[in-house]
Amino acid sequence: MSTHVSAAASPEAGYNFAYLDEQTKRMIRRAILKAIAIPGYQVPFASREMPMPYGWGTGGVQVTASILGRDDVLKVIDQGSDDTTNAVSIRKFFERTASVRTTTHTREATVIQTRHRIPEETLREGQVIVYQVPIPEPLRFLEPRETETRKLHALAEYGLMHVKLYEDIARHGHIATTYAYPVEVAGRYIMDPSPTPKFDNPKMHLMAALQLFGAGREKRIYAIPPYTEVRSLDFEDHPFRIQTFKDPCALCAATGVYLDEVIMDDRGGRMFVCSDSDFCEERRSAGHRGSMLADAPAALTGDSTHA
């Protein structure tokens, strides 16, 4: 798959550009501006009903809808892949309602909406990455009262976050949190990076692109402006570490990237491949060959989508 202009030159009749009415978009943009002004702070917003269920990224969709312009090029990924149901349906949604160009190539996109991953390719200035967030409050598990968590944020009372990490180490011998690993933004607010693997946390640090987070059900928007310090919480004697993988990607031989375990057949055959499907395909087009590329089913190599 690559960049293409969708069939209709203008949005489908009956929709406002990018589905939301202009007043709603202005309201959401105000929330986004406030979020950018206070990095990591959760800004409440009047989340709207979207034509998809909560849990399908309604927060991210509203943020994307509010920032899209006619010249934008949109990429949508779910777990790193452009081809999953969730990613395809959100991409189609914006093709229909905004008739913007879409792409699977990270480099070509101006707006990337994501669930669970940050692309492997370094994002650059001028790009915006929009995260779909299910639970924005990092203190929720330890302090269920919203009035209290707000106070804890206001006073930067974050000892509880380390209690959680302490419990992790006491129970497992190491910090066992691997997803939604809490970060401190610009030396102030503690933030949940959404359920991305902690592998992606370092990419958030000093990222050149603007990072926006939308939680639809919980009605919160937060942001990390370009070139902001983002630090993963840890202990001096248990420093933050990303996941590492023993072998390179079985399809494209990439190392230092996030790999998914894939079951190949019903005999228990499995392999580890790039979770970022666009990154993997590009490497293969450039001639990189992983150890199992020849044996892998077409559905895995992405060949079927090119047919």
């Binding site: 330890l142 009372e157 000892g159 509880l160 380390h162 209690v163 302490y166 419990e167 180490i169 006491a170 129970r171 840890d234 202990f235 001096e236 004697d237 248990h238």
Partner: peptide, 22 residues
């Protein structure tokens, strides 16, 4: 905190005032 270990209960105040060495 009834669902936090005894060690975590004792350590909470230390972490609240900035202790960062497990």
């Amino acid at each position: 905190r009834m669902s936090v270990s005894a060690g975590g209960n004792i350590g909470e105040r230390l972490m609240a005032v900035g202790a960062r060495h497990y």
